[in-house]
Design a protein around this nucleic acid. Structure first.
Length: 966
RNA sequence: GGCGCGGUGGUGGAAUUGGUAGACACGCUAGUCUUAGGAACUAGUGCCGCAAGGUGUGAGAGUUCGAGUCUCUCCCGCGCCACCA
């Protein structure tokens, strides 16, 4: 009998498939199309490990499944060869990028081939090839002509290690996405793509996409749209105006100062003579801080007064203008109106610099019912400074409009002031008598609730007061017997209380009195002139529309996303197709002169002087202006590698086109991508850029869809067996090549990648687990070989109808399960189902001591091979052909199942007594309820638990269970 | 702090509309066979218990004949964002 030897049979089939062009994609309109795409790799590392391989295994299983189901599948592969990853690899290994790409793509392609992935290699693309980047440059010119590419001198992220500027998206927590070193800022003249023009569409169109919620939210987060208003504050005794952006125009009356970012251009103009030295010193100090330092939220607020004042346009009040580094220049207008009463940062700043705080919104909580009885009230916190605890009244479980954890509270009598009332309430409700007033809230709180003691709807409005316990002298409470039981007096640690309080007013008061936090929520307007009494939501609209008429304010959407900076001061990228002419300015390279080829150079190392190495190549640099024929210079920066990957999925539809980036009819045929598979690391880089370019092409009429990737599948990471990320520095990298060498074979690796757990969850690689799936393949192999051996012995076989039927039932059940699971991408359970199936086949074989009848076994084993084909294509093909088939299994139709064979004649019914399983009985599938109940009752274990009693109630779920309730 | 995703044996993980919790695999235990090898095969394996039985899906409550699954409260872990006005 032949031994299972993947080392021999896998390369054999890989070669045959290649010769037969088995996986070539054709535009056949008779079949439904399916475009399955995995992120194309940077050929940057020395090799791929089993973590990378998972991505392609998932894609290949999907591609093969749909191919067998009669779809016209496009499953291409290429190389993201331009850009930092590839060039840094070359620098590190001291070779030219050309050579690095050549070597790495060869190695990667070999790795992919030996894994047996079904790519149409005829469509292979390489983004560093002139036939490709010609069209990347064409795309640049398209953006340029649309006014979506522009040049600007500005301060940008600069990576000193990689010696280039970076886009915002490419800086993660102040570190370069490639080398992980801290970035600095540098001012250079740079090219940008105007992605901000697409911000709204990039957010809104997420809605209809089949993407994970987490990626969508990352993109929304990144684009950072917030709704608010821009308001102009005139500067006192000056013609200057300070514009601010705020999401809370309703707090305008509470603005008691303004803050400009230290970099704000108005700072120099506004600063008065006597403040100049302070301001200059502060600016200098702010500049010295790294951006990472500046973003540290826990830092204490710093800032200085400019000496100037602005006029609050809503009430003409002069308010001081400060500068502080908690205001960032890049967002909004780089200036804010500061409302310390209703913003935590402004509050902290105001406290530190003794700036007045004005409260203009009072918290409200609860629904107003309309029939409330009004009561002037107090909300009282009693603190024990000795152990930092406070009194919380526990009114029992929180019900709809009463109960829960509360502060001390109560009504204020006509003869009392707030303090007197509060003292009385403390004594009455808790018995404590010796305490002193510490703080009283300047604002009121308004609560609407149902009083459980008075049995009616109440409105309470009043102040919050904080008392410190002097000693724990405690007299009797003044409660009726009935009242006493309604709540308990408890002492709780100070820092735990706020979120436990069940009433919004109590919480707001507590936060202000004890935690020193301002009120940032919604509420009712006060100290706001004509807006007093309105809700803050209402006032927000009305204040803006009122000022809008006077042209002082306008409602505005503000975004965090910045334009995409695409210039790179590096050699290894697509040259930006622009010529700078002294008289014509920046002129696009005429389309017929594309590509602007990357010149061969002796040294390509980045210079670090803010210019790309191309600036040293005079033959490249010097050219004639296409406009006026005068002497001119080429742009020497290259494009961000992410530009190349922003349209590659389109090129796969028509990879050899010399006249266009792609034929629109081809794009129309294949796109959008149906299944896009890759890691989550591109959430806000590639995926955002590619969506933008797609929208540009859509707007220009080149394509008929405006989202490139219908479904996005982010596979989970494969970790090393030690649970850490695979990395050379940890020395825990597992390469598929080694496993293949050891004899496991690509099929086992592929199976393991999927069986290890749900495809979208990360998992640690397990060599023992790999042994498990290998054993499964071997068992499948041996079963088939034994069958073939018995067939050849030419014995007379007796077709036992009963066995045939059980084989068929088992088979159709398995087809059903594997098909459903594949459809739902439940690869791990699909594989489990096949394992179970093979285990059962072994048992059946043993039970009948051999393979009878032959024809049913032939069908069983051939179909098993088909089910295995998307996962383990080599062994599936080998067994298929050994079973006597000529054509490739991968051209076969996916097996279908007969629903009739899924229905069992007899079913196992669970018998429960009081919900606990007591017995299993077998009953025919169509038995009626009464029969089943009778049958269940007679079971001895059931009888023991029924104890001779008649069930109070009997629940029957047909075909599943009987439950007797006694 | 905000948003998103999770929590099931020794381990990775299974469980249609609520209906036998732990499929499948790893590991472990015992056995069979063997050129005694980290092979193959057979049986067992949530926990407590000799057993009958009890108990069990992060914790607590609720709905239900019945809850891993639904509702509420809380705890823990991971990811992303965060002085963004």
């Amino acid at each position: 009998m032949r031994r299972y030897n993947p080392k021999e049979l896998e390369p054999k089939w890989q070669k045959k498939w290649e010769e037969q062009q088995l996986y070539a994609a054709y535009e056949n309109p008779d079949k439904p199309k399916r475009y399955v795409l995995e992120y194309f790799p940077y050929p940057s590392g020395s090799a791929m490990h089993v973590g990378h391989v998972r991505n392609y295994t998932i894609g290949d299983a999907i591609a093969r499944f749909y191919r067998m189901r009669g779809h016209n599948v496009l499953h291409p592969m290429g190389w993201d060869a331009f850009g930092l990853p590839a060039e840094n690899y070359a620098i590190k290994n001291n070779i030219s990028p050309h050579q690095a790409i050549e070597e790495n793509t060869t190695r990667f392609k070999h790795q992919l081939t030996q894994m047996g992935f079904s790519y149409d290699w005829d469509r292979e693309i390489n983004s560093s090839d002139p036939t490709y980047y010609k069209w990347t440059q064409w795309m640049f010119l398209l953006l340029f002509k649309k006014g979506l590419a522009y040049q600007k001198e500005s301060l940008q992220w600069w990576c000193e290690t990689d010696k280039t500027v970076l886009a915002n998206e490419q800086v993660e927590a102040g570190k370069c996405w490639r080398c992980g070193n801290e970035v600095t800022k540098k001012s250079l003249n740079q090219w940008f793509f105007k992605i901000t023009d697409y911000a709204d569409r990039l957010i809104d169109d997420l809605e209809g996409l089949d993407w994970s919620e987490s990626i969508k939210s990352m993109q929304r987060n990144w684009i950072g749209r917030s709704h608010g208003a821009e308001i102009s504050f005139p500067v006192q005794d000056s013609d200057e105006v300070i514009d601010v952006f705020t999401t809370r125009p309703d707090t305008l009356f509470g603005a008691t100062f303004m803050v400009l970012a230290p970099e704000h251009p108005l700072v120099k103009k506004l600063t008065t003579r006597d403040q100049k030295s302070n301001v200059d010193a502060y600016i200098k100090q702010a500049q010295a801080k790294s951006d990472v330092e500046r973003q540290d939220t826990d830092r204490e607020k710093t800032g200085v007064f400019t000496g100037a004042f602005a006029i609050n346009p809503i009430n003409d009040e002069p308010i001081p203008i400060w500068i502080a580094d908690y205001v960032v220049y890049g967002y909004g207008t780089g200036a804010i109106m500061a409302v310390p009463g209703h913003d935590e940062r402004d509050f902290a700043f105001a406290k530190k610099f003794d700036i007045p705080v004005r409260f203009v919104i009072e918290p409200t909580y609860g629904e107003k019912q309309g029939d409330e009885t009004f009561k002037k009230s107090v909300f009282v916190v009693v603190r024990n400074p000795k152990d930092n605890t406070v009194i919380v009244l526990d009114w029992g479980p929180r019900q709809e409009r009463h109960g829960g954890n509360m502060l001390i509270g109560g009504g204020v009598e006509d003869s009392e002031d707030y303090v007197t009332a509060a003292k009385r309430e403390i004594a009455e409700e808790t018995g404590y008598t010796n305490f002193k007033l510490v703080k009283e809230s300047e604002f009121l709180g308004h609560g609407y609730f149902y009083s459980n003691t008075k049995h009616k709807n109440m409105q309470v409005s009043g102040r919050g007061l904080l008392f410190d316990l002097v000693d724990d002298t405690r007299g009797d409470t003044a409660l009726d017997e009935g009242e006493k039981e309604k709540f308990k007096v408890t002492w709780q640690p100070i820092d735990k209380v706020a979120s436990e309080l069940d009433d919004g007013i109590h919480e707001a008061m507590y936060r202000y009195l004890v935690l020193d936090e301002p009120y940032t929520g919604e509420g009712v307007m006060v100290n706001s002139g004509e807006y007093d009494g309105k809700s803050s939501e209402q006032a927000r609209e009305q204040i803006v529309s009122g000022l809008e008429k006077k042209k002082i304010a306008k409602s505005k959407l503000q975004y965090k996303i910045r334009d995409w900076l695409i210039s790179r001061q590096r050699y290894w990228g697509a040259p930006i197709p622009i010529i700078h002419c002294g008289s014509c300015g920046p002129v696009p390279v005429p389309e017929d002169q594309l590509p602007v080829k990357l010149p061969e150079v002796e040294t390509y190392q980045p210079t670090g002087d803010g210019k790309s190495p191309l600036a040293r190549v005079s033959s490249f640099l010097k050219t004639d202006c296409p406009g006026c024929d005068g002497p001119a210079e080429r742009e020497t920066d290259t494009m961000d590698g992410f530009a190349c990957s922003s349209w590659y999925f389109l090129r796969f539809a028509d990879p050899h086109n010399d006249d266009q980036p792609f034929d629109p009819s081809m794009a129309k045929f294949w796109l959008p991508v149906d299944d896009y598979i890759g890691g989550a690391e591109h959430a806000v880089m590639h995926l955002l850029y590619a969506r933008m370019w797609t929208k540009v092409l859509y707007d220009e009429g080149y394509i008929s869809f405006d989202e490139p990737f219908k479904a996005l599948r982010n596979q989970g990471m494969i970790l090393a067996p030690d649970g850490r990320k695979m990395s050379k520095s940890w020395d825990n990298v597992i390469a598929p090549d080694d496993l293949i060498d050891k004899g496991y074979g690509a099929d086992s690796i592929r199976l393991m990648e999927l069986f290890i757990g749900p495809w979208d969850q990360s998992a640690s690689w397990s060599i023992e687990g790999l042994g498990g799936v290998y054993r499964f393949l071997q068992r499948t192999w041996t079963l088939t070989q034994e069958y073939l051996a018995s067939k050849k012995s030419d014995e007379e076989v007796h077709a036992a109808a009963e066995t045939k039927e059980s084989l068929q039932r088992l088979l159709h059940k398995t087809i059903h399960k594997v098909s459903e699971d594949l459809q739902n991408m439940s690869f791990n359970t699909a594989i489990a189902a096949m394992m179970e199936y093979v285990n059962q086949l072994y048992k059946l074989k043993a039970a009948q001591s051999g393979f009878v009848p032959t024809d049913a076994w032939q069908e069983t084993l051939s179909t098993l091979a088909k089910l295995l084909a998307p996962f383990a294509p080599h062994i599936a093909e080998e067994l298929w052909q050994e079973l006597g088939n000529e054509a490739s299994i991968h051209l076969e139709a996916w097996p279908s199942y007969d629903p009739k064979l899924l229905v069992e004649d007899t079913v196992t019914i669970v018998v429960q007594v009081n919900g606990k399983v007591r017995a299993n009985i077998d009953a025919s599938a169509d038995a009626n309820k009464q029969d089943i109940i009778e049958q269940a009752k007679t079971h001895e274990r059931v009888q023991a638990h029924l104890e001779g009693k008649e069930p109070k109630k009997t629940v029957v779920v047909p075909g599943r269970l009987v439950n007797f309730v006694i």
